[in-house]
Design a protein around this nucleic acid. Structure first.
Lengths: 190, 190, 190, 190
DNA sequence: AATGAATGAGTATTCATTCAT
DNA sequence: AATGAATGAATACTCATTCAT
């Protein structure tokens, strides 16, 4: 059984996904979570205070998707392919929520926490890059961490384009995924 | 002299930039624009309805920056360098506004208009790519339009990282700009 | 061709009928009448100032209905039958408008004008009663004018019941009309 | 102690009586009730949504007036006399409120609820008529329920005429009350 | 910890009215 | 007489937040 806190976060994610952040009220969240209005404030001082918890959850989901697929992969190409796939999958499920998380719109105050939250994700990709550099698969003058961030930025924005803006069809999505991968391989000279 | 509608859009951009979307009220906007409360509603039914007009203005600013610099350039490398520079410059000036515009948070209802608004920008880069392909500067299997979109996504997210999330210092900004350019050149095999 | 003033009154009647007085704005009225916002104020100082003109129009319609039918009738019974029929017919066409006119809700300020407006209607029925008393058809201790007012009150409220509250079917309407006539005949010992 | 909801209804009745519906704002109502603005919206979504509760209260008051007087009465004539008296008394106290309730202006949406609200009143009179028919006091071909409705319509409109339109003096009121009673007795052949 | 009715400041929104053209 | 963009006071309504239970 979920704790009240988890119930709140889950309800918020669902509602943000369905109707957007602005149109979702705390009242909506507690109704969906089946808890009392006041209970919300035991766990979160405000609606914005939800954001870090929400980002954490999103990153957790993303990391799970990536983790399970990347371990099995051998080459850096395979690994990157799986990462792109994971990012596209998560964007398909939570386009609205990720748009908020990624663009950092949830008020300037929490932006710094977010980088912290996203850190493990950057770190993981960074590791992969470093290993690939070490064993000669990749040669680049850019630092692994910076490269990791550029990669995530590139892939996320590509995924948003198809899922959030264009509401593209399945085949278009596949093409975009293929294209971003090619672009990425070229950038890394793979 | 500016029309009332233009006054509203300009005031909104300024205020969003200064205090963010959420903290900016319609009252703030009309006060800044020096018009009556009701006048706002003659032109826009709500705050969110401002978004397309706002995006148009941002794209206009971006295009002006790009246009003036790109014409002078000769090679595709030079042109891309200038484009990246233009995008970074605009992001430096309007980080908050662009975050809103770019992340597409402005409610699901207007998302489709946005692609239309961004279209001239995509089209312009697309043209440059095509010319570069024609004269053999670039070889790529990806379509020019898709490549253009990937480039914009990549550069925009890189710029956001330094201006919105990290509030980086001048030197870090330069490094990021240099890095994204290198990444981009590699991706296009330049 | 209708004058602007007539256009305003007619549009107001139509709109009050369709959406009620409260939900009808002056803006609605001028749009329907295809005239400018300011033109309204040339003819009427406010929305409430429309009411007497509106009542006049309604009474005019009612009188026309009654007039054409009553002249042909011979006996007082026949005449009353026709009056009841006329009132029901007009109520069928303008239930909402008549509810307002009859109940006098359009603000206390114009109530006195209304009695003046309704006067010809009361007077006409009053005449009929008096004639019927004179030629021995009716015997009553009540004054003709008071009797006329009671009759109108009775028949109007009966008509409202079926058209406004119950939205009755054709057959129910006929029954109600028949009933109120019988009740009326009995009251006048006819 | 009164519930918040009752407080709202009572304040609304008082204010409608004093200044009419249109001039009474929700702000006025909550101030008079000594409750917060938001509390109003917990119980009623709008001013018009008050109407059914308001009608219920009015019917309750009317029924109390009638009930206390009719029980003591023996003959149907006495009973009707008391009913007319009760209706006139309530109309004297709440002319404005009753005008609203009775005319059904409270927006088309709630009209159906009103017949339900008025039902006990119709039913009560209907019972009296039926008893009077059973013990031979009254002979009529009309159904008791329909007769009851006609009676209420007649008496209410007669009362409105003196209290709402004409603001008649005491003696005129008495005359009107006497007249409507005579008219009614004749209609029922009493 | 949990509740949910109550709060009221803050904000959006409406619409009668004006006035320069 | 006619126009209709502009006005801004008046009002409705929301919703984050509190607190007694």
């Amino acid at each position: 059984m979920m704790s009240k806190k988890e119930l709140i976060v889950q309800s918020a994610i669902d509602l943000f996904q369905e109707q957007g952040i602005d149109k979702t009220t705390i009242s909506d969240i507690v109704k969906r979570a089946n808890i009392a209005q006041g209970t919300f404030y035991i766990y979160f001082p405000s609606k914005l205070a939800l954001m870090p918890a929400l980002a954490e959850e999103m990153v957790k989901v993303l990391m799970e998707h990536i983790g399970s697929k990347v371990e099995a992969a051998q080459s850096i190409k395979e690994k990157l392919t799986n990462i792109v796939d994971a990012i596209f999958t998560v964007n398909e499920q939570y386009p609205e929520v990720l748009a908020v998380v990624y663009s950092g719109l949830a008020s300037t105050e929490h932006l710094k926490q977010w980088e912290t939250v996203y850190e493990p994700c950057y770190e993981m990709i960074s590791q992969l890059i470093e290993e690939a550099i070490d064993n000669g698969e990749i040669t680049t003058k850019l630092s692994p961490k910076r490269t990791a961030k550029l990669i995530i930025g590139l892939v996320e924005s590509a995924a948003e384009q198809v899922y959030l803006y264009d509401h593209s069809e399945e085949t278009e999505v596949k093409k975009q995924q293929e294209a971003v991968l090619q672009f990425l391989f070229a950038a890394l000279k793979l």
